[in-house]
Design a protein around this nucleic acid. Structure first.
Lengths: 343, 343
DNA sequence: CTGGATATTTACAACGTTATACAGGCACGT
DNA sequence: ACGTGCCTGTATAACGTTGTAAATATCCAG
């Protein structure tokens, strides 16, 4: 049987509350008493029952992290960052995945998936502003990714428009003139729209075409979606001299198609991705990518949730995390050595 | 304020226990009463307090999954499988990562990282048998990966020796005669040792060399480790005509080095990986790999934990999950079309 | 020594739920 | 009419913890 405060109290010949005081480092306990109780705790191997503590204090020590999918290393790396950041505050992370489906995202945001949590970090794809309006839950919510919502929740994001513009500018600086965008997701995805906007703005500013024939929508965000989109573009007869993909996975999928068609990267087609996943650094051609500071995003998200949980209700914040453009072979060619252009 | 059973009881004019009975679908409740109470539940928006339920019942509805690292897509995909399998049983998954370090693995196995859990699924790397001997915890533990332990815990694994032999045989069947192994991890890693054993057995059975010069130890299991190991082998002057890597990430890292050195895959060097991560299907050269049935592993692990939790203590089982060898370009060349050889 | 302040410890009541045991009510066979 | 047994619903006591307030011990100045 598990040993409780009562057992320890009996063993040490003191009251339950005194043992509790020792366990919680309450300050008014004599060193002698503390030692005596501690000895009993050690002897019996007492470990606090968290369920009881939760019931009493109303806190669980758990925050939930809901991501679209774990298969994408970007999210996996982000999850690792969140877990570590939470651990630094003695918090544990409950992980869930929504598949990027609005329905699942709503369930998560309403707290129907995980109900033992103190806070929630959600990375939405399709979630709409109105889905959050009638949120009955009182657990703090932090959103990952830019949103145009006017809602009292913190956002942690990088400036997607600016990052996309930087990526496109990099391609233009290298002399490319026809830049296709891969991954404007069918249906709603605010983030994809922002990156398309950045792409369009930068091209337009340079007086270059940004017509719809250069934008390939996809169903999902995996390698296969990128490959399918690339195939569609090539089959349409266009031969863009550069590709900007919504994320690295799609960029890599697109590159695979380019290899198969005998097009050289970057000589015939330069490619830029987004997320800077490790995978991009080990292909036959290493991938130029926008690199969000995942560690910072994870840390800021955890801190935001915990701040709100402290009882204070600070003004909802939009927090911008850093990013860099990391240029590699897929734009610079084999000669180019890796180098980063600061945010 | 949150609404409790008491509030619902007052609203419906019945006792607390009756409400509880309705909530828990206790059978001896008249339809009329059930309906009346349900109306109050809906009216007030009652949702059970899991902490209290947990305290009373001793169950949390949460199982923990501790993996070495999430950055490796194999584990991320496995995590997704576990989350889904758990959801099918109304269980939630708490995710943790150990970095593959013995110290962390011990903490996890002793329940020091997550303490509100009903069961634990652990994928150990360095954990030793003796670390589990004095496991005070009474939460069921299921181990992922083969172990030679004589301990009362379920193992879910594929037959690593046989799988490794199948991979090597595939290379030998293609006429390769000098097969190097990349990823015999420095320090302890039972799984790596099993794969080395399979490699050695198959080579020896074919009368081919399996000397230490063909085995490259690594520090970790990422792309960079594979690349470093490949570099070391080539720098040693050997030119193996085939590589069998501990996992896909290392295989891909190794291939990157081969490209850089101007060696062609598979013409000069054939490569086989392990895990069949999506990434391997989209490189310039697609990767032949051993494909464990992740979905089955996740499902079996969840079922094992929950079975033990049901009070019964079935005999500790060693459960074998399926695997296939999926041959792709890194052994067959561009001509070869994808095909799977059944387990 | 004593009174009063301060430090330490204790008793008790919650937190929200479910298990147990029991009280009525009703149907049925005798 | 009377036990017998089943069906419903209820009161009460836990589960293990911590906050509150009160009780006791200790200390110090006068």
């Amino acid at each position: 049987m598990r040993v409780s405060l009562k057992d320890v109290a009996a063993h040490a010949g003191v009251s339950i509350k005194t043992v509790s005081n020792v366990v919680n480092n309450y300050q008014h306990v004599t060193p002698a008493m503390r030692e005596r109780v501690q000895r009993s705790i050690d002897a019996l191997g007492y470990r606090p029952n968290l369920a009881a503590r939760h019931l009493r204090k109303g806190r669980t020590g758990i925050i939930a992290l809901a991501l679209p999918e774990l298969g994408n290393p970007y999210f996996a790396e982000l999850a690792a960052a969140v877990i570590d950041a939470a651990a630094a505050h003695d918090y544990i992370v409950l992980l869930d995945h929504t598949g990027g489906h609005r329905e699942q995202e709503v369930l998560v945001s309403q707290g129907f998936r995980a109900r033992v949590i103190d806070g929630l970090i959600l990375s939405p794809i399709e979630l709409e502003q109105e889905d959050l309006l009638d949120r009955a839950e009182n657990v703090p919510l932090v959103l990952l990714g830019e949103r145009d919502y006017e809602l009292p929740y913190d956002h942690i994001a990088i400036d997607n428009v600016a990052a996309a513009r930087a990526a496109v500018r990099h391609l233009l600086d290298l002399g490319r003139r026809e830049v296709a965008f891969i991954g404007a997701r069918r249906g709603r995805s605010e983030t994809a729209q922002l990156r398309v906007r950045g792409w369009r703005e930068e091209l337009t500013a340079a007086g270059l075409p940004a017509d719809d024939g250069l934008v390939a929508a996809t169903e999902g965000w995996g390698h296969a979606d990128g490959a399918a989109a690339m195939t569609r573009i090539l089959d349409s007869g266009r031969r863009p001299d550069a590709i900007f993909a919504y994320n690295d996975l799609m960029a890599i999928g697109a590159m695979r198609v380019l290899y198969e068609r005998g097009l050289r990267v970057p000589e015939d087609t330069a490619v830029v991705g987004f997320d800077d996943v490790v995978e991009g650094r080990f292909g036959a051609v290493t991938l130029t990518s926008v690199s969000p500071d995942k560690e910072a995003i994870g840390r800021l998200a955890v801190e935001s949730v915990l701040a709100r949980l402290g009882g204070e209700a600070p003004e909802p914040r939009r927090v911008w995390a850093d990013y860099r453009l990391v240029a590699r072979e897929s734009t610079l060619g084999r000669a180019g050595r890796e180098g980063g252009a600061e945010n």
